[in-house]
């Protein structure tokens, strides 16, 4: 899949005025290879615990509201989903996590530009983080209502499957940060990965599948649409006429087995 290595430039948010376009960072200056080893000791800066996390610097417009992120986009890439969610849910704090330095810098600069140009997107932010290791350092138990895994690295080789963002052991941590009723959104253009994610989520006792229709009935159609269409990867798949597989799950509770 050499395609993945290059992310097409020029998919800037369409609704920008010419002036604010000038402010937006250009992707071609932030390219980076698509894969990162989640197991290695990256030089990361992360809070010791959620209490040590100061969200004020990330969401200065929300200082004093006591709000903390409720949506987390794991592997947010160039940030398309967050940019879309920001205007759909202006009161919900959205945090993107991205392990690649360049890409996370791009998203930062992008958010910074959008905030400056239009005073919008105050409710989105990004951290460079390894979510496979440090998710609980950012989010307290049951603090999130949605988790997004959109077009994650497929790690095609079997030997690399353990580096996939969805695994039976990691699902426990996702369930921990999600509140009961919270939704996990997954989408990919790689069929094998879709089967993998769906299988593991279905088998995990704390998640139950929820159909796209049910989500739309719950009023989450706008999220589903954003999941399909707003990410850079998603748009690329569309351009290439690829297929997209969506699978969503709801966090449920189970009693203790005696």
């Amino acid at each position: 899949m050499p395609k993945r290595k290059r992310t097409a430039a020029g998919t800037q948010a369409a609704d920008q005025t010419a002036e604010s376009k000038k402010l937006l960072p250009q992707k071609r200056f932030y390219r980076q290879r698509a894969h990162a080893n989640p197991f290695s000791d990256h030089a990361l800066d992360y809070p010791k615990s959620p209490q040590h996390m100061n969200w004020d610097t990330h969401y200065p417009a929300f200082v004093g509201t006591g709000r903390t992120p409720e949506f987390a986009d794991i592997g947010c890439g160039f940030g398309g989903l967050m940019i879309a969610l920001a205007t759909l849910y202006p009161d919900v704090l959205v945090l993107g996590m991205e392990i690649r330095v360049q890409v996370s810098q791009y998203v930062q600069d992008r958010i910074s530009a959008l905030r400056t140009a239009d005073n919008t997107h105050q409710n989105v932010s990004i951290v460079r983080a390894n979510a496979m290791k440090f998710l609980p350092n950012y989010f307290p138990k049951a603090s999130l209502s949605a988790l997004f895994f959109l077009f994650p690295d497929p790690h095609f080789k079997h030997r690399k499957h353990k580096a996939r963002i969805i695994s039976p052991t990691l699902l426990a941590e996702y369930a921990y940060v999600l509140r009961p009723g919270g939704i996990v959104y997954t989408i990919t253009d790689v069929k094998d990965l879709h089967v993998w994610m769906r299988t593991h989520l279905e088998e995990f006792p704390l998640f139950e599948p929820i159909s796209e229709e049910a989500l739309r009935e719950e009023g989450k159609g706008n999220i589903v649409d954003a999941v399909y269409k707003s990410t850079e990867e998603g748009q690329k798949v569309e351009r290439n006429k690829g297929e997209k597989w969506l699978a969503c799950f709801k966090r449920i509770e189970v009693p203790r087995v005696e």
């Binding site: 010791k48 615990s49 959620p50 209490q51 040590h52 609980p136 350092n137 138990k141 039976p168 699902l171 426990a172 941590e173 369930a175 921990y176 995990f204 006792p205 704390l206 189970v254 203790r256 087995v257």
Partner: peptide, 17 residues
């Protein structure tokens, strides 16, 4: 985590550096 239901995390003791 619970045992044997290790997939249920009760808490994290965080604060170590």
């Amino acid at each position: 985590s619970w045992y044997p239901q290790g997939y249920i995390i009760e808490s994290f003791c965080l604060g170590c550096s």
